[in-house]
């Protein structure tokens, strides 16, 4: 089954996202911010990355930028979780290499539908 790296500084969002994904049969690697995620990414090979944008230490957009520099992450689907539905944040994410985004608030069904879009 596919593995997803999820990154969020909020424990409740992390719980909700991970519970949903695990319930749908995905394996989950959890990280609490960009720095943590980057470290964990180096030792694993997830099929997709799902990251919050606003985080301490390293934000989600920088994380995506950094991940894209790693050879094994050049084509990995990377999704941003963001409350900003503004075009500004999306285009920033896109130019950093994000595959797409999921706008908060979302429910478990929306989350799974979005994940299905990138993991065939």
């Amino acid at each position: 089954m596919a593995t997803i790296l999820t990154v969020d500084d909020s424990a409740s969002m992390r719980q909700m996202v991970n519970f949903t994904l695990k319930g749908a049969g995905y394996d989950v690697i959890e990280a609490i911010d960009g720095v943590d995620a980057l470290n964990k990414a180096k030792g694993s090979n997830p099929d997709a990355v799902l990251t919050d944008v606003n985080m301490p230490n390293m934000d989600g957009i920088t994380l995506i930028q950094e991940l894209r520099k790693l050879p094994s992450y050049r084509h990995t689907p990377m999704l941003m979780l963001t409350t900003e539905s503004s075009g500004d944040m999306k285009s920033k994410g896109k130019s950093a290499g994000a595959t797409g985004w999921l706008v908060k608030p979302f429910n478990p069904d929306q989350l799974l539908a979005t994940i299905k879009k990138v993991i065939a």
Partner: peptide, 23 residues
């Protein structure tokens, strides 16, 4: 940034967990 992030997380969470007034 810290202040913003805190507010931002509360907004995000409250939205997802259905506390509309807080959102």
């Amino acid at each position: 940034n810290k202040i913003f992030r805190a507010a931002h997380s509360i907004k995000g969470g409250s939205g997802s967990f259905g506390f509309t007034d807080v959102t």
